[in-house]
Amino acid sequence: MRIDKSHRPWMIAALVVLGVALAGYVPYALGTRPRGGSVPGLIYGLAGYGMMLFAGLLGARKKVPVWRLGRAQSWMRGHVWFGLLTLPMILFHSGFSFGGPLTSLLMALLILVFLSGLAGAAIQHFVPGMMTSMVPLETIYEQIPRVRDQLRAEADKLVRSLFTVPDSVPELTLAAAASGPSRDPGKSDAGEMIEMEVAEREYAGGVYRDTVLPFLRNPESRRSVLADQGKAETFFEALRRKMPPATHEVLADLENICEEERQLTRQRRLYLWLHGWLLVHVPLSVALIVLGGVHAVVALRY
């Protein structure tokens, strides 16, 4: 979610609300000692808690994407800008005091949620663009393991045209490997061996077994020469020089598979940035809303 011009109305609305709240708070604080239990304090508290609930409803909204409850983007913008308002509202409510044990815990939770939300908004602003430029072969994050299995199967199928796959190479893990992307019809495929010297065939088998296959099995490892794009290009260039021209197309496909593996690795890392902060933001938000409700009930009782 990029924070762009489309956010302007929400930003203005948030600033207006903040301005009104501040305009009310200054004379209130100058006239008396601000307390959460005073009438203005209660108003700020209810407003702040209402904004928390509104921000929390974003999660519920995502559970029912087909309901006609407004656009998800609008909900997200409201979540960001009214979520930002919760901290000043609660500070006005408490008179900038942390209070007792429960209220101190709530204030700590609020600050953590606020900071993690800020970090998340920044990440969501910048990382999607990076994802687009750095991972043109992006896939659905949750499907990465499945796609990797398919890439390994596809590579395995390709190299059968270069040499006989030894028994030490595990069989394809997916029976559906054949349905994966393949070369153009009529080109060499599994079962059609390309003609070359025995030594070249053995060399190709060794390279695949020692370098390419370990990388495809563990593409997240940084130790493989194929984990680095520059080194991988050098590696395949050298390989092409040693192999007959008839194999170059297969080698190019192998190189392409390795590049896709690297992109999936980048996608995984960027995805962890994109969504990892939610492991802090969401649980603490839920705790804040639940415990805030307890605080509201008890505080209103006493």
């Binding site: 796609v147 992307p181 392409n256």
Partner: peptide
């Protein structure tokens, strides 16, 4: 460098269509 072809259909075939039902 690609002899590999990534058509939309083939890419879609990679995906387990029930993936979103699992956590």
């Amino acid at each position: 460098m690609a002899g590999r072809i990534r058509t939309t259909k083939k890419l879609a075939q990679r995906i387990d269509r029930g993936y979103f039902k699992r956590l």
